[in-house]
Nucleic acid binder design. Structure first.
Lengths: 391, 391
DNA sequence: TTGAAAGCGCTAACAC
DNA sequence: GTGTTAGCGCTTTCAA
């Protein structure tokens, strides 16, 4: 049992009343400078901390932010939420909040947990992840005017979808990836993504398509939509490369898809004797120093040089339509999320600024909790490209 | 604002006094069956939930369990804590507890956080991860008789290290991996691990060494100790395979090391035209159904057949001492932690039962919190082998 | 500026 | 078996 230090102990030791101690902490401007300093010193000396439960009873604020934790370990991208969670815990602590965890299988059970939590621990706010079309959670929270922020845009224009959110601009990420490949001389750049309908997936595809269009390059037939996964990524890559489009580079919606694509690229390279961006297995990996994009200033996408002066590129590849063309140049691959897998296999990948996203969530929340009428605010963050051997 | 339902509302609606409602929830045996049922029904109808802060003020229990969240995303094994955390949240919820997160850079700052938390949110217990030699945290908590459980053994015999813990038997994991390789016919099985001194690493090495000894096989010179990492794993594997020990299989202390080793194995295979357990890049991956070890009964290690009847093995490899021997058979590799990376590249790996470990932590904690004198208890769980292409 | 009083919602004592 | 009383530690009136 840790000996408890109450506000009364501090008051006695400082020779003031309880309220003066309370004021020192909650309304410093009301206390004389000298008194304030003295009280603070005593607080420090006794190691006093305001009891949260008592404070909560009086103020109605728990200084708790609740968030769901997903199974995570299941997929390659599992580490994304993990990293976000770490950042959230850190940012929240800085703002005087703690993170409370809960689990839920689906929207309905998550709402049931909201009710449970609101009645018991009374979290001041929620952070929602994995937002989707017709998200029941956002409308439920909105109806009750409960403070929350979503990490992820509302993928719907319904009135029940007007709320604060923080997101990473996926389209900007795939656009940067595409620009990087263009600058490297590639002209036939394919895309491996998910079936239409998922906001996130559509967004990532759009960035690629938009960038090709901006450069007057056609995108028809250069894209595949499949379920996420290494194997489906490999299948899609094989299909796309065999389709006669003479694709020399692939932008992928996930590291899982990209890993599958990379396997295919390696197979082609070893069949034809060409090296891909990936070294022969067994060669030492590059130093980590070269793995990260230098970040100078607000522009987070790497400087790849003027796009009007592409490096020597693969545009002269002699394709054999309808079949994997032997003799082609290496196929470049870029993934999304910059997961540990990407780092492990040397996959260039779009990195989400997860720490910043978490900090933005906390900033939006504290602002909303401070003011009376929670304003609806949005933060869209730019991802960056982590350059590795694969592209 | 959610309308608040207090115990008084329930009492009024049920036509009883406050205390009868409280008793119904906290001391059901004291209330008449009929009254109890009626009160419960009203509680249900009104959606009443006992306010945690008020309850905490009275009882001194927060029903909160605190745990540190690590950066995680940094390493390949980052997903391990994530999965454990999910299990912990789930198990804790079942027992009526919630998980509170905090971050800390080292032992000292973690202890500072203990003090902060204990003074404010008053968590009922802590779960410690990543225990190590001379762990300041455990002695600090022990001195103050604060309830906690460590996920990980105390790697020290000091008196300050006598506490409840839950751990996974790493030695049993590497032993199972080694037995699996022996059953597959391998006789020269190497080990890639970390420098001595880390309890976890020593433990994993011991399982391998012990198993070789049990089979009358020598272990001398068949092991390497390096920092964790893909590249260092590759280097160590190259070194070990070139050392003339005619090693045909490698057990590794982590998936990172194993991934490096796998790259080297692949290089050897493609140099010599042999296939490793890993397919040529581009070939479809096996179905997930075949990826998981069938689990029948308490024995979690896979049935690999009687070890006295090994399959055709690589024991006749014609080694060229001092250099990588061309013409050798495939080199099998087994990792540790069964991370997403292992799944992605088809690496056989030792899987920790993280959900069970989390459940055990909660069980130990609730037991300790229930009884007056927290008994020191230990739970050592058996890992299993997730079979994939690499071995 | 500082001190006194009230009460947030709950449960552990005790009296009925 | 049920009701009354008290108080956990804090902040927010209000009075000095």
């Amino acid at each position: 049992m840790a000996e408890k230090v109450t506000i009364m102990d501090v008051a006695r030791a400082a020779g003031v009343s309880r309220q003066t101690v309370s004021n020192t902490l909650n309304s410093p401007q009301v206390v004389r400078e000298e008194t304030r300093r003295h009280v603070l010193e005593v607080i420090q000396r006794l190691g006093y901390r305001a009891n949260q439960a008592a404070r909560q009873m009086r103020t109605g604020r728990s200084r708790l932010i609740a968030i769901r934790i997903d199974p995570g370990g299941d997929g390659i991208s599992g580490s994304v939420l993990d990293t976000f969670l770490h950042g959230l815990t850190e940012s929240a602590a800085r703002a005087g909040y703690r993170i409370l965890l809960y689990t839920a299988a689906d929207d309905r059970s998550e709402i049931a947990t909201f009710e449970d939590l609101l009645g018991s621990y009374e979290p001041d706010a929620f952070v929602l992840t994995a937002t989707h079309h017709d998200d029941l959670r956002t409308s439920w929270l909105l109806e009750r005017r409960l403070p929350f922020v979503a990490f992820g845009r509302p993928w719907s224009d319904l009135p029940g979808a007007r709320h604060s959110w923080v997101d990473v601009d996926g389209a900007a990420g795939t656009a940067a990836a595409t620009r990087h490949l263009l600058a490297a001389g590639h002209r036939r750049i394919g895309f491996l993504g998910w079936p239409p309908g998922s906001g996130v997936g559509d967004d990532r595809r759009a960035g690629w398509a938009r960038t090709l269009a901006e450069h007057g390059l056609p995108a028809d037939g250069l894209s595949r939509a499949v379920e996420d996964g290494v194997e489906s990524g490999a299948r899609a890559a094989r299909d796309l490369l065999a389709a006669g489009g003479e694709v020399t580079a692939l932008v992928c919606a996930s590291d899982s898809l990209a890993l599958g694509a990379l396997n295919v690229a390696d197979a082609l390279a070893s069949e034809t004797g060409h090296l891909t961006g990936r070294p022969a297995p067994g060669t030492p990996l590059p130093t980590t120093a070269s793995e990260t994009t230098p970040q100078t200033g607000p522009e987070t996408t790497p400087q790849t040089g003027p796009e009007t002066t592409p490096q020597t590129g693969p545009e002269t590849a002699s394709g054999m339509p309808g079949a994997v063309s032997p003799g082609r140049r290496p196929v470049a691959v870029i993934g999304f999320d910059d997961t540990p897998v990407a780092r492990a296999v040397g996959l260039t990948s779009v990195r989400q600024p997860l720490g910043e996203a978490a900090a933005a969530c906390v900033a939006l929340l504290t602002r909303a909790l401070g003011s009376a009428g929670p304003p609806v605010e949005h933060v869209l963050l730019e991802p960056s490209l982590t350059l590795r051997r694969s592209a």
